[in-house]
Computed example of a mutant assay.
Amino acid sequence: MGIPADQRAEIFEAFRQLNNPARDSGLGLGIGRAIVSRLARLIGAEVQVSSRLGHGSRFSLLLPLDRTTVADIAAKSAPDDSGGRILLIEDNAIVRQGYELLLILWGYEILAVATGEESA
């Protein structure tokens, strides 16, 4: 129910969760906002958060007005050592498909599965 102003930057750090000191994985992993923030930077977008303690929070994604294609963005952000094989394990189908597309555009051969068991 809201994020203190002095902790708003922290919530975009990977594996950082406020009010979950026991690291209860049932409350998530603390990676979602970090992924969104990094992907937003790649495409020149901005993630904004406004919050009131006791009331809640609103997250906004401000997208650039650009005609650049996904392939152009992928080419700009491609690693220097592209190519090879990657095993991608992600239980969220939408996130998995997004990573798979990006990695294929970067020249990798991908095996994308929802669980470790599926990779056997």
Rank of each mutant, 00 (worst) to 15 (best):
residue 22 A to T: 09
residue 92 N to P: 00
residue 95 V to S: 15
residue 62 L to F: 02
residue 94 I to E: 10
residue 90 E to D: 10
residue 120 A to Y: 13
residue 120 A to V: 14
residue 54 G to E: 11
residue 14 A to R: 09
residue 33 R to F: 07
residue 101 L to C: 14
residue 86 I to F: 12
residue 9 A to N: 11
residue 49 V to G: 04
residue 47 V to R: 05
residue 44 G to C: 01
residue 51 S to R: 05
residue 3 I to L: 05
residue 26 G to R: 12
residue 7 Q to S: 15
residue 5 A to P: 08
residue 34 A to D: 11
residue 54 G to H: 09
residue 77 S to F: 01
residue 68 T to K: 09
residue 39 L to M: 12
residue 11 I to T: 02
residue 104 I to E: 08
residue 81 D to N: 15
residue 36 V to F: 03
residue 51 S to I: 06
residue 85 R to E: 11
residue 28 G to Q: 07
residue 87 L to A: 15
residue 59 F to H: 07
residue 23 R to M: 01
residue 27 L to A: 15
residue 11 I to D: 09
residue 59 F to W: 12
residue 110 I to K: 04
residue 46 E to C: 05
residue 71 A to Q: 12
residue 27 L to I: 02
residue 19 N to R: 04
residue 51 S to D: 07
residue 53 L to H: 01
residue 107 G to Q: 11
residue 42 L to T: 02
residue 116 G to V: 12
residue 68 T to Q: 12
residue 60 S to I: 00
residue 44 G to D: 07
residue 37 S to M: 01
residue 44 G to L: 02
residue 73 I to D: 09
residue 15 F to E: 06
residue 102 L to M: 11
residue 84 G to Y: 02
residue 17 Q to G: 06
residue 100 E to Q: 13
residue 118 E to K: 11
residue 31 I to N: 02
residue 98 G to N: 05
residue 74 A to L: 03
residue 24 D to T: 00
residue 108 Y to P: 00
residue 2 G to P: 01
residue 55 H to P: 00
residue 105 L to A: 14
residue 63 L to T: 08
residue 15 F to N: 10
residue 119 S to Q: 10
residue 60 S to L: 08
residue 2 G to E: 05
residue 76 K to N: 11
residue 96 R to S: 04
residue 60 S to P: 02
residue 15 F to R: 08
residue 81 D to L: 14
residue 98 G to L: 06
residue 73 I to Y: 09
residue 78 A to N: 07
residue 66 D to N: 14
residue 92 N to R: 10
residue 64 P to A: 09
residue 117 E to C: 06
residue 15 F to H: 10
residue 5 A to L: 05
residue 76 K to A: 15
residue 25 S to R: 09
residue 23 R to V: 04
residue 39 L to V: 10
residue 48 Q to W: 09
residue 86 I to S: 12
residue 3 I to W: 01
residue 95 V to D: 10
residue 102 L to F: 05
residue 54 G to A: 07
residue 110 I to M: 06
residue 100 E to G: 03
residue 39 L to R: 08
residue 1 M to F: 08
residue 33 R to I: 04
residue 17 Q to N: 07
residue 112 A to P: 06
residue 19 N to I: 01
residue 15 F to V: 02
residue 44 G to S: 08
residue 34 A to T: 07
residue 79 P to T: 02
residue 7 Q to I: 00
residue 47 V to Q: 04
residue 108 Y to A: 03
residue 50 S to N: 12
residue 25 S to M: 11
residue 109 E to W: 02
residue 109 E to H: 12
residue 9 A to S: 13
residue 110 I to F: 04
residue 26 G to E: 04
residue 1 M to Q: 10
residue 45 A to Q: 03
residue 119 S to H: 05
residue 26 G to S: 14
residue 15 F to Y: 11
residue 38 R to F: 00
residue 61 L to H: 07
residue 84 G to P: 12
residue 105 L to S: 06
residue 98 G to H: 04
residue 54 G to N: 08
residue 33 R to S: 15
residue 51 S to N: 07
residue 22 A to E: 11
residue 56 G to N: 08
residue 17 Q to D: 09
residue 96 R to M: 01
residue 20 N to A: 03
residue 108 Y to R: 03
residue 45 A to E: 03
residue 54 G to F: 14
residue 27 L to K: 13
residue 118 E to N: 13
residue 12 F to P: 01
residue 10 E to I: 00
residue 63 L to F: 08
residue 12 F to G: 00
residue 65 L to Q: 10
residue 29 L to H: 05
